[in-house]
């Protein structure tokens, strides 16, 4: 039972982490209608920036600030130079152009940092465990990720539903002409939203640095997971992204933790291990296919826009 609680917490942690990435991606899609494969590159940019900042300054706080800043700037440049021209294009063009961006950013990172993974150490203050329940110590750093992710989720909720910026954003997703008529610079608004999404991805990258390794291509694996999240949640919906992220995080973690044991009850152990590992890695894709077959537009399709 204790183990189950711990694994559930691990699942929530992964979910919250995925939400940081999914929020930006789904926001960008929901408002500008752009499908951005290079979102993972922004995550990578954040991770490299924080590793670099930590190396230069030795301060983890600075590193965590550098990550979203750098990713935001890269994102802004990306929007102005490429993404902006894709708003009116179809999804195929968007997929291909942003695929080109991935290739470009991966090679740029390889040229500037080499192909070897970089490593960041967790600041000693966070490198310990707390006992949430007796007998279940939990790493402080992972707890920090959960808290940071929940804070961002709360902030996003307030921002979008309560603030003027939020109402502009919501209007932008439905009626661009009206916004322009009101004298609002839609181009600027879009660029800022894109940069904001990039900052969230960069922040996630900064947080991931000390936990995982910082390396070329780190964005791609997580990108696919993130897409699964927003597709499950309903593309364009922040609420959906949150639900989808938790669902994927928990399904993935519990699958990895308990599938081998379950299968061993039915199959010889040698086979069970391999099959369980295979099934565990397929689990989220099966989940996604299942949900899409059940609800083709995801769990929370946004009202304003059709599933397209």
């Amino acid at each position: 039972m204790l183990l189950f609680f711990e694994q559930l917490l691990n699942g929530v942690q992964l979910g919250v982490f995925l939400f940081l990435l999914a929020a930006g991606l789904t926001l960008i899609f929901g408002i500008m209608g752009v499908i951005n494969l290079a979102h993972g590159s922004l995550y990578m940019a954040g991770a490299f920036a924080s590793a670099l900042a930590l190396r230069l300054s030795g301060s983890f706080t600075l590193a965590l600030i550098a990550a979203p800043l750098a990713a935001g700037l890269v994102g802004l440049a990306m929007e102005v130079i490429v993404i902006r021209r894709l708003y009116a294009r179809d999804h195929l063009d968007q997929v291909l152009a942003t695929f080109g961006l991935i290739l470009f950013f991966n090679e740029i990172a390889a040229i500037s940092f080499g192909r070897q993974p970089l490593f960041m150490n967790i600041p000693p203050a966070l490198n310990s465990t707390v006992e949430l329940l007796p007998g279940a110590p939990y790493p402080v750093y992972r707890l920090l990720i959960i808290i940071a992710g929940l804070l961002v989720a709360g902030l996003l909720y307030v921002l979008i539903s309560r603030s003027r910026a939020g109402s502009l954003i919501r209007a932008g997703s439905t009626d661009q002409e009206m916004l322009s008529a009101l004298g609002i610079n839609v181009k600027m608004l879009f660029a800022l939203v894109f940069a904001f999404g990039a900052m969230l991805a960069g922040f996630a990258g900064g947080l991931a640095g000390p936990l995982l390794s910082v390396e070329i291509g780190m964005g791609e694996n997580i990108l696919i997971l993130t897409f699964v999240v927003i597709v499950i949640g309903g593309i364009g919906s922040i609420r959906g992204a949150f639900a989808g992220a938790l669902l994927v995080g928990i399904a993935d973690t519990l699958g990895r933790a308990f599938l081998p044991g379950l299968l061993k009850l039915m199959l010889p152990p040698a086979e069970a291990d391999g099959i369980a590992a295979g099934l565990a890695s397929m689990a989220i894709y099966i989940l996604m296919a299942g949900i899409l077959i059940w609800r083709p537009a995801g769990l929370f399709p946004p009202q304003g826009r059709s599933g397209a």
Partner: peptide, 21 residues
């Protein structure tokens, strides 16, 4: 305990919890 993880996996939270148990 004998566990197979995904090739290229980066996050081992689930496996480490299994080890602890």
């Amino acid at each position: 305990g004998e566990t197979y993880v995904k090739l290229g996996q980066k996050d081992y939270a689930a496996e480490i919890a299994q080890i602890r148990a």
